[in-house]
C-alpha cells in the first residue's frame, strides 16, 4: 500500500506539530521557570514512530501509552492548548490539572490514558482489546511502551493472554536503547546477545518484527498490517520500533525551590558516547522525512517551511492559552475521588 501524497503531507505535519510542542514544553523550563512541576518526558525523536502508528488507526480504534505520552494525543487530534494547559497544571488542561504531563487522556479521541509506572499499561491495553473483541466491531487497540517495559512481568503475562485469547491488540515497543538511564544491553538478555527485542515474541507464538521507527511510512505499513491481522481476529503482534530519543529521559529531579531543567542526554552524560548521540541527531526523523518529501516532489521547501510556521504559531497559542488559564480551586482536589 502506498499512501497518497495528501496522507504523507498530513503525517509530516503531525510530526512537526509534535516536535514543536515538545520544544515548547522544554523551553518552558527556561522561559517560565516554575510553571511545569514534577516530571515530563519528551517524545522528540519518536515522532515518525508515533505518527506512523496512529496513521494506521481508524475511528473506533484506541491507543494506550506510558508517561512519555505527549505525542499520541497530538497525532490523534487532541487540542494542543488543552494538552499544554494540563502540563502547566491549569483548569483548562485536558484533565483539569489533576494529571499533568504523565497522565494525559482524551477518551473521545480514543486515547485511553497512561500509567507512570513502567509496563503497567500493557495489561490495560490487553484489557481494552478484550473489550473491543466483545464489542465485535473490529476495533483494535495500539499499546505503546518502551524497551525497558519488556522486563516487567506484566509484559509476559499480558502477551501470553493476548495471544491465548487472540485479542485485537498491537504491542508497539519503542526501543530507544535506554531503560531510563541504563543501556538496554546491560539489562536485557536478548540485547546482550545482540538479538532484536522482537525475539521475545517467540515465547507467545506471536509474530514479532523489528523496524526502523525513524521512517513513518515503514511504521505505518507495518502497524497497518498488524492492525489488519488483529481486526481479522488473528490476534496480536509485537512490533519493535527502533527510535532514538533526542532529549534526556526526563527533566531534572529536584525538590521544590531548585530550578528544573533538561539535562544532557544519557548517552553523553553517563556513557560519554558523543559520536553516537551526534549521529542520532543527524538521523533526526523530522528533517529526514522532510528531505524525502521534497526530493520526491510531494512538498516544496516553501510548503514545508509553511508547515513549520503554522505549527509554531499553534504552539505559541497553546502556551498563551495555558499561561492564561487559571489554576484550579484548591478544594477541587476532593472531586473525582470516586466516580
Amino acid at each position: 500500500m502506498t499512501l497518497d501524497t495528501g496522507h504523507q503531507i498530513t503525517m509530516y505535519r503531525q510530526m512537526v506539530r509534535i516536535r514543536e510542542f515538545e520544544e515548547r514544553v522544554k523551553r518552558t523550563f527556561t522561559d517560565h521557570p516554575g510553571v511545569i512541576r514534577g516530571h515530563t518526558h519528551l517524545a522528540d525523536g519518536a515522532e515518525a514512530s508515533i505518527v506512523g502508528s496512529i496513521a494506521a488507526m481508524r475511528p473506533g480504534d484506541q491507543a494506550i501509552a506510558t508517561y512519555r505520552c505527549h505525542g499520541y494525543p497530538i497525532a490523534l487530534g487532541s487540542d494542543t492548548s488543552a494538552l499544554m494547559a494540563e502540563i502547566y497544571g491549569r483548569v483548562g488542561g485536558i484533565c483539569g490539572g489533576y494529571g499533568g504531563s504523565m497522565h494525559l487522556a482524551d477518551i473521545a479521541r480514543g486515547f485511553l490514558g497512561t500509567s507512570a509506572i513502567v509496563a503497567q499499561n500493557i495489561p490495560q491495553g490487553a484489557g481494552a482489546a478484550y473489550a473491543a473483541q466483545l464489542r465485535g466491531r473490529g476495533d483494535v487497540v495500539l499499546t505503546f511502551f518502551g524497551d525497558g517495559a519488556t522486563k516487567q512481568g506484566a509484559f509476559h503475562e499480558s502477551l501470553n493472554v493476548a495471544a491465548l485469547w487472540r485479542l485485537p491488540v498491537v504491542f508497539i515497543m519503542e526501543n530507544n536503547s535506554f531503560s531510563v538511564t541504563v543501556r538496554t544491553e546491560e539489562e536485557d538478555a536478548n540485547a546482550a546477545a545482540g538479538e532484536p527485542l522482537a525475539t521475545k515474541a517467540k515465547a507467545y507464538s506471536m509474530p514479532g518484527t523489528t523496524i526502523d521507527g525513524g521512517d513513518p511510512l515503514v511504521v505505518q505499513q507495518t502497524v497497518a498490517d498488524a492492525v489488519a491481522r488483529a481486526r481479522a481476529g488473528d490476534g496480536p503482534t509485537l512490533i519493535e520500533s527502533l527510535v532514538y530519543r533526542l532529549s534526556a529521559h526526563g527533566n531534572s529531579i529536584a525538590p521544590p525551590g531548585v530550578p528544573l531543567h533538561y539535562p544532557e542526554h544519557e548517552a553523553v552524560a553517563i556513557y560519554g558516547a558523543v559520536e553516537e548521540y551526534e549521529a542520532a541527531k543527524r538521523g533526526d526523523p523530522v528533517p529526514r522525512f522532510r528531505a524525502r518529501l521534497i526530493e520526491s516532489g510531494v512538498l516544496t521547501g516553501d510548503q514545508a517551511g509553511a508547515i513549520v510556521d503554522e505549527a509554531q504559531a499553534e504552539m505559541q497559542a497553546a502556551v498563551d492559552f495555558a499561561l492564561n488559564s487559571p489554576l484550579p480551586e484548591p478544594a477541587a482536589a476532593l472531586n473525582h475521588v470516586y466516580a
Binding site: H103, P330, A332, A333, L334
Partner: peptide, 16 residues
C-alpha cells in the same frame, strides 16, 4: 493527607 490521590496542580496538591 485527605483521602484522595494527589492532584498534579499545586493548589489542589497543597489543599490535600
Amino acid at each position: 493527607a485527605l483521602d484522595t490521590t494527589l492532584a498534579y496542580s499545586q493548589p489542589m496538591e497543597e489543599y490535600v
